[in-house]
Amino acid sequence: MVLISKQKVREYGKGLAVIILLLVAWECAALVIDNNYILPSLTEIAEVLLHPAQPVLGGESLIANTMVSLKEVLTGFFCAAVLAIPVGLLIGWSSEVQAYLNPAIQVLRPIPPIAWMPFAIAWFGIGINSILFIIALGAFFPILINTVDGVKGIRVRWIEVAEMFHATTFEKLRTVVLPGALPRIWTGLRVSFAIAWMCVVAAEMLPGTTAGLGFLIMYAYNLGQLDVIGAGMVVIGIIGLGADMLFRAGQDRFFSWEGKD
């Protein structure tokens, strides 16, 4: 049985109160404005959300579009993690590798992933590959930077313990550096998932896409269906929140030892 403390309930209550207040304000504004092309009412948005399996605007359903986006995010996110974690471990471990790679990383890091879109289309063509490239690019740097910081934060003493037992370099990386850096890597994954989610919606808004939440929002905009846009935004927000809660739960479950040395 999950016990939630009174303090937690009060905390959630405060957050919920603000959300309800915003919804009421939205609904009131929609009633006053009374124009679907400026502000759709919550009931209209809810109408779309309550029938998630029905075709929207003559196309795929809300669920189908969500699944397309989710699949793209997960694929791009996975590719980014597979690349960024080993590279980050190497940079954090070897000052030589860091000297070579750090300047390039610091120059590339601040460029918004969407700015790469024209190149992505030129290299990979219109479609899924360009979108995956943009997502992976957006997710790559937060994982990389956090992995590097995680390795830098490893206590020298832990490495000495491994050396005392004659660990090989690979064993030191596998048994000390990777597990010791894992809490920070996890933080990197959490941050980058949120960025990947933003990237997918933005990338799907570009011409040539035929499915996904970003596509749905853009398509609805072209048809002036602001209620569908609102519904798409709600789904994006909820999935983002859900993913963040999952990452936090993982952090509490697996890294309870962090900082309690």
């Binding site: 003493r157 832990w158 491994a162 004659h166 660990a167 090989t168 030892w257």
Partner: peptide, 27 residues
């Protein structure tokens, strides 16, 4: 084998896993 002033245990490993740490290495 050395014992340090600050125990230097691996905080992510259980007591048991810490004890067998050295035995699991190829050396």
């Amino acid at each position: 084998a050395m014992i340090f002033q600050d125990h230097a245990l691996f905080p992510w490993l259980s007591v048991e896993e810490n004890i067998i740490y050295g035995l699991r290495l190829s050396a």
